[in-house]
Simulated scan of single mutants.
Amino acid sequence: MSTETGTWRLLHRAKGPRPAPAGARPLRDRLALTAGLVAPFLAALALVPFRTDLSHTNAALILVVVVVAVAALGSRAAGLLAALSSAAWFDFFLTRPYETFDITASADIETAVLLLIVGLIVSQLAARTRRLEVITVTDADHLSRIHRTADLAQSAGSADTVVDHVRRELTDLLQLRACRFEYGTLMGRPPRLQQDGSVTAGRRPWDVDAADWPAGEIELRTYGNGRYLGRFMLTPGPGPVPPLQARLVAVTLADQTGAALDTAGPAEEG
């Protein structure tokens, strides 16, 4: 399999990393939640001296900027909190009657509602942009593995060199205790890491989101031009099954190994 083909499959079938467990929220997100509550209050308070001269539309736009900043800094939850806080303090400080949560003018009600809606939308967009940045960093690491293997497959004098390289890559990528490669005939029916990144045990799919790896070794087969050439036998380490993105990279590395073995010919396979 070429590097371009492996990259295409990874980018089109991988998903983002698993969310952090509850209670493990990063410090950055906790600070953003605080900013989501406090920053709109401070911004609205700062606009109080100008509220008679500043149009309500311009004031709302300033608060939208605050929402965007908070959402870009932290999580989606922080952006949502900032949007709600902005709408509340806009009502309290910047619409008549001042220092109450009552609005008498219909135009001010419309502005407050629009502020809330726009704030919610932009917070979603900003948070999504941040998430995509995280996924891009992860993809860069995964893609570097694919490119390293492709370069080695083209330059290595022996397919065994590629096999050993991929065995080490799989051990690191999937956090394995051990990884070995078997040439030739299939023996037994161990659990299998499939081409789509799923895991099967026997004839049944394995729930990778709710369980650890199946017990025992996991096979990852390699093919060259549709012909079975061998399999990596994976001994899982402790902890849950790695994310789908990592599993798809593992499948791509196995495919590159199969391509190297197929090019080398029968003499290399024994």
Rank of each mutant, 00 (worst) to 15 (best):
D160F: 06
R96N: 06
E4I: 15
A14W: 05
A14V: 11
W213A: 03
T222N: 01
I109H: 02
T138W: 02
L173P: 02
H12Y: 09
T149H: 09
I135K: 05
P21V: 13
V241K: 00
D91T: 15
V38F: 05
P17A: 14
T111F: 04
A78Y: 01
A140S: 14
D160S: 11
V48R: 00
A82I: 14
M233K: 04
S75P: 05
D209Y: 12
T95F: 09
Q175N: 14
R130P: 01
L54C: 06
P236H: 04
A260N: 09
I218M: 07
L152A: 11
A44K: 00
L47D: 00
R25S: 11
T3E: 10
D207G: 07
G197P: 06
P238V: 13
A22G: 12
G239Y: 13
L132M: 13
A59S: 12
T34Y: 06
T257F: 05
Q245Y: 07
G6M: 04
P243L: 14
G265P: 01
V163A: 10
A210K: 10
H12A: 12
G16F: 02
G239D: 08
L42S: 07
L33G: 03
R30T: 14
P21Y: 13
W8D: 11
T263P: 01
R9K: 06
A46P: 08
L220E: 00
E110V: 15
A43S: 09
L132V: 11
A59L: 06
G226P: 02
A112D: 09
